[in-house]
Computed example of a mutant assay.
Amino acid sequence: MKIAVLWSSPNTDGLTAAAKDQFLSGLQKTDAKIEEIHLNKLQIEHCEACGRGWGSCAVTGNFWKKDDFSNVYEKLVQADGIVLVSAVYWHDITECMKAFLDRLRRCETAHNHFLSGKRCILIACAGGTGLGAIECLHNMEETLKHMGMRAYDRIPVIRYNKEYMLPALVAAGEMYAERIVSGFDMQY
């Protein structure tokens, strides 16, 4: 079983990295083969909405620019499960995650459908007041719905709850891997 953990934050020692690490430690208790993908370390170009918004990615299912997008996309296609972990900026995902998901949505929704039915975990990490975490999770899920992917859990980690949420992420990672193997399904 393969699980891709896609995360985005410029801080490799902040709250988002800690949440990702806790979830990974739960996954590591299982037989999962884990692919950790740190979007901030990659070159992912923004969608240019070419062809009046319906450019080559929507027609052919791939993007014409040569960057790291196709490599990450293939890793998600090969994964049995996908975990998205993002810092929260302005009540939304990071710009790196947004650029990747915008392009992914164009390829998936209009042409490929390779990720349809994939079972996902969404984690949003907010400093400050934490008010944007829930809205960020909602936005992430709406993006996944366009591609036919399904969120199995939506986990907000904020300054207030990090003392109990970070340890809970270990159990969440372990349970997610077990549920992927058992075929657990939630229809909605």
Rank of each mutant, 00 (worst) to 15 (best):
M1N: 12
K2G: 03
A4L: 09
V5L: 15
S8D: 07
S8H: 04
S9T: 13
T12I: 00
D13C: 05
L15S: 08
A18E: 03
A19T: 01
A19F: 06
K20R: 13
K20W: 08
K20E: 15
Q22Y: 08
F23D: 10
L27R: 07
K33G: 06
K33N: 10
E35W: 03
I37D: 03
I37Q: 07
H38R: 09
L39A: 13
L39G: 14
L42W: 07
Q43L: 12
I44Q: 12
C47Q: 10
C47S: 10
E48C: 01
E48L: 14
E48M: 13
E48P: 00
C50E: 06
R52M: 08
W54E: 14
G55T: 02
S56L: 06
C57E: 09
A58L: 13
A58H: 14
G61H: 08
N62Q: 12
N62K: 13
W64Q: 10
K66G: 14
D68G: 12
F69C: 05
N71L: 13
K75G: 04
L76D: 00
V77T: 11
V77L: 12
D80V: 10
D80W: 02
G81C: 07
G81Y: 11
I82M: 12
V83E: 06
L84I: 15
L84W: 08
V85N: 07
V85C: 15
A87W: 04
V88G: 07
V88P: 04
Y89M: 05
W90E: 00
W90H: 05
H91F: 09
H91Y: 13
E95I: 02
C96R: 07
M97L: 15
M97W: 07
A99L: 04
D102Q: 00
L104S: 02
R105C: 12
R106L: 06
C107H: 04
C107I: 00
T109G: 03
T109M: 14
A110S: 09
H111I: 04
N112I: 01
N112P: 00
H113M: 08
F114A: 03
S116C: 07
G117Y: 00
K118M: 03
C120P: 06
G127P: 03
G128A: 08
T129N: 11
L131W: 12
G132F: 11
A133V: 09
I134N: 10
C136Q: 11
L137F: 09
H138P: 00
M140H: 08
E141C: 10
H146P: 00
H146K: 11
G148H: 05
R150S: 03
R150M: 11
A151E: 02
Y152K: 04
D153L: 02
I155D: 06
I155R: 01
P156G: 14
I158D: 15
Y160A: 14
Y164E: 15
L166W: 11
L166G: 08
P167N: 05
P167W: 03
L169Q: 02
G173T: 09
E174W: 03
E174Q: 15
E178R: 14
I180R: 13
S182Y: 14
S182Q: 11
F184I: 02
D185M: 02
M186W: 10
Q187W: 12
Y188K: 09
